[in-house]
């Protein structure tokens, strides 16, 4: 069974869905996905301490902190083979989206999603309609609303999107096998 990969950290913290939400998302997914699916958190070695907080509450045999453990080439291979990738408005979501891998991008309000969203026909974008977007800020500390655009996105909604993305992938595979033309979602 393919991994679910989480990339919770971008290079600009105002774009990061809060780490505690990622942790809660893992809890939601563990309840809903097959028991032989594992969940990996990826990132750089310097993000490892923060990732510890994300994985800590969850069973160590199903949830792994792989921050700093994978070479870039190994990470790319992991992404290509993933069951679903969940990330922010950042490079990993763009990469997995371009591979056609089911990708859920939790997109903050700092930038226009129409301009910066990851491309791919199996990308699902989760964002918040909010009046202060786009603020074009770089740091969470600058946000006058404590990143409400991301903070108010609930883990259960993202979990729904993950299940939807993985189901669409399966549905498309079945349709392809059956030779049915797929148009739209």
């Amino acid at each position: 069974m393919k991994n679910i990969i989480l990339a919770p950290f971008s290079n600009s913290d105002i774009r990061d869905w809060p780490a505690e939400h990622y942790g809660a998302l893992i809890g939601c997914l563990l309840d809903r996905v097959e028991h032989d699916r594992t969940i990996c958190v990826v990132g750089t070695a310097s993000q490892r301490l923060r990732a510890n907080d994300v994985v800590r509450p969850h069973p160590a045999d199903r949830v792994f902190n792989d921050c700093g453990r994978l070479s870039w080439a190994a990470l790319v291979e992991e992404l290509k083979g993933a069951g679903c990738v969940i990330g922010n408005n950042s490079g990993i979501a763009h990469l997995s989206g371009s591979f056609g891998v089911p990708t859920v991008c939790v997109f903050g309000g700092s930038h226009q999603r129409a301009e910066w969203r990851p491309l791919g026909d199996n990308v699902i974008l989760v964002s918040r309609a909010i009046g202060c977007s786009p603020c074009q800020l770089d740091h969470n500390s600058q946000s006058p609303y404590d990143r409400a655009c991301l903070r108010l996105i609930e883990p259960a909604v993202v979990a729904d999107a993950v299940m939807l993305a993985m189901a669409r992938k399966t549905d498309r595979a079945i349709r392809q096998i059956a030779g049915v033309q797929q148009a739209g979602f």
């Binding site: 913290d13 699902i124 309609a129 009046g131 202060c132 969470n140 006058p144 409400a148 739209g184 979602f185």
Partner: peptide, 30 residues
């Protein structure tokens, strides 16, 4: 985080044209 927000306002502003909500979107090829 290294820097705590200095002053957080209580309520984020409304999105004028739509109710505040979380959107889940995907692309289609019309």
């Amino acid at each position: 985080p290294p820097l705590a927000p200095s002053k957080i306002r209580s309520a984020e502003p409304d999105y004028a044209f739509e109710p505040k909500r979380t959107r889940v979107e995907s692309v289609s090829q019309p």
